[in-house]
Design a protein around this nucleic acid. Structure first.
Length: 774
DNA sequence: CAGTGAGCGAGCTTCCGCTTGACTT
């Protein structure tokens, strides 16, 4: 019987800490919050001091019971949840859920998982900070009020099952507004001039590449300049060398890890988190949901040793980074390898790549600046005052660059920062070619998942644990999609001076191509417009920052939490009621034109199940006709011709083996139907255009694939099957499915083994998976 | 589950943050 029960949030952490403490301590994890507001009702008594009604979260009942039993047998319960607002609340909820007496609990905190830190924490227990808990309650209740009051307004005024929230609505707004910027963006162009010269020195020819120190607004000016160059002499008129230094980036936080993994490894935000979680659970890295740049003293010391041994003492520099992130809570360390000495790890390719990146970033953060020598050489032109400038860069001491180079979102800086030939004042240069190239300004880039996270973090909106879920929520609600945009072609001018003649040329370039970016949908646009009109304060980019200030005042005891909520709620609720009563339903209806045959109006608007086209008026005796838009179309861009075409569905494509093939769009997207079965069309196919041949191909493929679904069947018991599913092989018995234990080959399973596995899983209480209803 | 889109109105949807497994066209 142990005397001490320590409760932390994460099970991996519990395991590590148990090793540090003696036999007298049992360490358990509560898996985060154990109580919350009930899911399907407001659960806040708004007329009575905003008293929350908490329940034990259904998925935590088991763990709460277990902890309760252990707590009863213990003398002291050490509440060791994270040292931040949520962590403090978790501890307080534990005292309530486990019914712990005040004299039985001790609250302890530590920021790093080292033996010293834990022992120190145990020796310095404190009480639960009720002010901090109240700040969390204010945060929780505010989010509930915002979400559960505004969402129903959207159901009635826009479309069913939509949602609004302090974080998600602002995230969507960012994407919507970026798209607007792109729509209204007008590219302007200027002529950039680059020159190639030859330097003759010591019998050798050296090539010098330089750029003019100004741009020209139009072709005429550019041409006039080139003409002046025909007779000109080019001479080095200034050589300037100055030292510069580059410093490494701080070690990773959740958000910077997501950004860098996206740029360097092409990982989605959620993939990064899944892989990081695996590394964490395997004990390879520290906790992956953090906003702190801090490294433990132990980590600093081992980095110092590692750098010195690998590269020499002169490469090492101890650095501590201060957090500049708004609202950071810094309950953890930065993300770093648990053991710096492990340069690589075992694991799958994703784990290895992500680990290597974390290792390099951590090590580099404790390395010396790179020392660089930058050289600017000015080249005068005898016939005019403009000058060419050649830039060179020489790394004198590589420092941290030996290990790690951070990438940026706009990796298109091409202008050569290379080594320059030995240019000296007064050197004469021969021109080989001077070109004036028309360059267009670049439209703002659409957000990637990772760059959206970066923006949200800058605004102090969302937390490390919610970045990935937020991105998936706004997609699930249909506000945004991840899609690519084809680039468009345009011509640009190139004027080239070679020998004594100027050649004029037009070249083609593709611009605006973007791959896998966040793009708003019609619904995203409509909802954002609606919310901006009626709830501008909540959609304000500073809303979170402002309420955070109030949460801080609650935490410091200068404000009472339910008073803060009262101040917010009274005007807010009034607004909600007013809108319910006075605002019209929005559908984004737009008149496209008239149908030629009938002269009836053709509209596009948001219907109950998504965007639709309507021919005729709603109040006519003859009901209007409707057709849904294709996924690739949008309410904003659809043309009358495209809209009318939609009414050609369903389309009969032809006959295959005596049966008709029909293409159309259904509840689940475009499909072809054949022999009473449905075959979903891949994204690349359009039901309006698909040919009979292609449809047959798709049908045969699917039939082929289905035949492979069955791995094994048993004569004596037809109920039992081994099937191939999306996540590999599984056993299906009637309508229940069972996992195949690791180490067993699906093809070799016998009927007896299958039944045994199903019995086993039922007994261990594992939830068997039933076919989802509906 | 693969043809809905009016209006009536039963019963439903929805937030953010903390944590892991379980999840099967």
């Amino acid at each position: 019987m142990t005397k001490n029960l320590v409760i932390v949030e994460s099970p991996a952490k519990a395991k590590t800490i148990e090793g540090f403490l003696g036999k007298e301590f049992t360490v358990k994890s509560c898996f985060g919050h154990v109580r919350d507001l009930a899911k399907n009702e407001l659960s806040v008594d708004v007329d009575n001091e905003f008293t929350p009604r908490y329940i034990i979260s259904p998925d935590k009942k088991k763990i709460v019971n277990e902890l309760k039993k252990l707590a009863e047998k213990s003398e002291i319960v050490w509440l060791a949840s994270d040292e931040d607002r949520e962590g403090e609340a978790i501890s307080w909820h534990l005292t309530q859920a486990l019914e712990l007496a005040d004299d039985k609990i001790k609250r302890i905190v530590f920021h790093e998982i080292t033996k010293d830190a834990i022992i120190k924490a145990i020796n310095n227990p404190r009480l639960i900070d009720r002010n901090l808990v109240d700040a969390q309650q204010a945060r929780r209740v505010l989010d509930r009020l915002v979400g559960f009051e505004i969402s129903p307004v959207l159901w009635r005024k826009v479309k069913l099952a939509l949602s609004a929230g302090r974080v998600q609505s602002v995230a969507v707004r960012l994407i919507v507004e970026r798209e607007k910027e792109i729509d209204t963006f007008k590219a302007i162009s200027a002529y950039k001039v680059v020159g190639d010269f030859i330097l003759l020195k010591e019998g050798k020819e050296h090539l010098v590449h330089a750029e003019l120190n100004r741009k020209f607004e139009n072709k005429e000016e550019a041409e006039a300049f080139l003409k002046k160059c025909i007779q000109a002499n080019f001479k080095v008129c200034n050589v300037e060398t100055k030292p510069a230094r580059k410093s490494p980036s701080p070690p990773f936080t959740t958000s910077t890890l997501q950004q860098e993994a996206s740029r360097k490894l092409g990982f989605s935000v959620s993939k990064t988190m899944v892989v990081a979680q695996q590394l964490y659970e395997a004990g390879k890295i520290t906790y992956m949901r953090t906003d702190s740049y801090n490294l433990s003293d132990l980590a600093l010391a081992t980095c110092s040793k590692e750098v010195s041994e690998l590269f020499g003492k002169e490469y090492h520099q101890t650095r501590k980074y201060a957090t500049k992130t708004k609202g950071a809570q810094e309950a953890h360390e930065a993300i770093r390898p648990t053991y710096i000495s492990a340069h690589t790890i075992e694991g799958d390719a994703s784990q290895q790549k992500l680990y290597e990146m974390i290792w390099k970033r951590t090590i580099a953060s404790q390395m010396a600046d790179a020392l660089i020598e930058k050289t600017n050489v000015n080249i005068s032109i005898s016939t005019t005052t403009e000058e060419f400038i050649a830039k060179g860069e020489v790394v004198k001491f590589d420092g941290f660059l030996k290990v790690y180079i951070e990438s940026t979102d706009d990796d298109n800086e091409e202008n050569g920062k290379s080594i320059l030939p030995p240019l000296a004042l007064g050197d004469l240069l021969n021109r080989t070619e001077i070109a004036a190239i028309q360059k267009y300004s670049v439209q703002p880039p659409r957000y990637t998942e990772a760059s959206l996270v970066k923006k949200l973090e800058e605004l102090g909106i969302g937390r490390p644990s919610t970045y990935a879920p937020t991105i998936s929520t706004i997609q699930k609600r249909g506000y945004v999609v991840i899609a690519s945009r084809q680039g468009k072609e345009r011509l640009y001018d190139v004027l080239t001076l070679k020998n004594a003649s100027i050649q004029y040329q037009q070249r083609k370039e593709v611009f605006g191509f973007e791959k896998a970016k966040l793009i708003p949908t019609d619904i995203g646009n409509l909802v954002t417009t609606f919310l901006l009109e009626h709830f501008p304060d909540i959609l304000d980019y500073n809303f979170t920052a402002n309420v955070e200030k109030e949460f801080d005042e609650i935490a410091s005891g200068h404000k009472v939490w339910n008073n803060m909520l009262k101040e917010f709620y009274s005007p807010f609720k009034k607004k909600v009621k007013y809108i319910e009563k006075n605002s019209e339903k929005v559908s984004g209806e737009r008149l496209l034109g008239v149908e030629p045959e009938t002269g009836k109006n053709v509209y596009v608007k948001l219907g109950k199940y998504g965007p639709i086209v309507q021919i005729g008026e709603t109040d006519e005796v003859n009901k209007p006709r409707f057709a849904g838009l294709l996924k690739s179309q949008s309410m904003e861009n659809i043309t009358l011709t495209e809209a009318l075409e939609l009414f050609k569905l369903p389309r009969t494509l032809g006959i295959y083996e005596d049966k008709e093939i029909v293409a159309s769009v259904g509840k689940f997207g475009p499909y072809v139907r054949y022999n009473n079965a449905f075959f979903a069309l891949p994204k690349t196919e359009n039901p309006l255009r698909i040919t009979l041949e292609r449809a047959i191909e798709i049908i045969l493929e699917k039939i082929e694939k289905n035949s492979k679904k069955l791995i094994k069947e048993f004569e004596s018991n037809k109920e039992v099957k081994v099937l191939n599913g999306r996540w590999g092989a599984y056993i299906a018995i009637g309508k229940e499915n069972y996992k195949i234990p690791k180490g067993k080959k699906p093809e070799e399973l016998t009927l007896e083994e299958c039944l045994e596995i199903s019995q086993e899983e039922k007994k261990t209480g594992k939830k068997t998976t039933k076919r989802s209803k509906k």
